[in-house]
């Protein structure tokens, strides 16, 4: 037995394929934190028997990278992660297997093979839908227009390291209040129904440091309007991807990978 411990000679096969996933956090599982999701995904990968690649060394870690995770309590239809596999697999088969191994509410929506570009670089902006009681629709609309006409809106967030104050106005590139049917029109899989009359705040934020969250937008609206706006019923990230400043839209971050897959 050697006296100096060296990493055990485990055969750590190299990564031969990288897959990008889009997944959702729905219903009551929106209360999972990002760490909770990470553990759930790692276990699901093992249950599904996927050939995940591991890092070498004393404590090998599965090769999974995450980007731009939604805050605890927020639902999302547009979360992204990348897996390194040690054997090639058909992306759609991986989607089906992984989705079956995850609890309902954490759903794998899309899997594509990664091209060269960095996933994190693709995630420049998000579209959020914040559901609020219909009774407060007028107040939210008024607060939204005040916020948009204000140059800088400094909000406070309680973090592990104390209070942090930062401007959100620079990140908010769109903020509109709609009736729910306007927002959900034409949506094929409207996964959520609304049990009470409500209005929807559509917010597009560009990602900065820190990334502006729905709670920050709410805090900003309360601050600029001076109104006691009610607690939102739910917040859902609808899109996350590259920001197209000319069209003012959030693009599909997996588009380059899909294109590469087609041409390649």
């Amino acid at each position: 037995m050697s006296r100096t411990p060296t990493p055990p000679d485990r055969h750590t096969p190299p990564t031969v394929q990288r897959l990008r996933l889009r997944y959702s956090k729905r219903g009551r599982l929106r209360f999972t934190s990002h760490r909770d999701f990470q553990r759930a995904l790692e276990r699901a990968i093992r249950r599904a028997g996927l050939p995940i690649a591991y890092s070498a060394g004393f404590s090998p870690h599965p090769k999974i990278s995450y980007a731009g995770a939604a805050p605890t309590g927020a639902a999302s239809e547009a979360e992204y992660a990348e897996l390194g596999l040690s054997a090639r697999r058909e992306p759609e088969a991986v989607r089906v297997e992984l989705d079956a191994a995850l609890p309902d509410g954490l759903d794998i929506l899309e899997v594509v093979e990664a091209s060269g570009s960095s996933l994190a670089d693709q995630l420049e902006a998000s579209t959020w839908e914040i559901v609020v009681p219909a009774t407060a629709q007028a107040e939210f609309a008024a607060a939204a227009s005040t916020l948009l006409s204000t140059g800088s809106v400094e909000v406070e967030r309680l973090t592990k390291n104390g209070r942090r104050v930062f401007d959100i106005r620079g990140s908010v590139v769109r903020l509109e209040v709609h009736d729910p049917d306007v927002v959900t029109a034409g949506r094929t899989n409207a996964s959520e129904g609304f049990s009470e009359p409500c209005a929807i705040l559509q917010v597009v934020v560009r990602h900065g440091t820190p990334a502006v969250r729905p709670d920050d937008v709410l805090a900003g609206l309360r601050l600029v309007s001076g109104l006691e706006l009610p607690r939102p019923l739910r917040a859902t990230r609808r899109e996350q991807g590259p920001w197209d400043a000319e069209c003012g839209t959030v693009g599909d971050p997996l588009a380059p990978d899909r294109d590469a897959a087609v041409t390649g």
Binding site: R28, F31, T32, S33, D36, D104
Partner: peptide, 23 residues
Amino acid sequence: LFPRLEPLLPLVQKPIQYVGGEL
């Protein structure tokens, strides 16, 4: 009781512990 509990979960620490649905 979940419908009554759900809107209150954002107010507490680590809400996932009250949600259930474990594998």
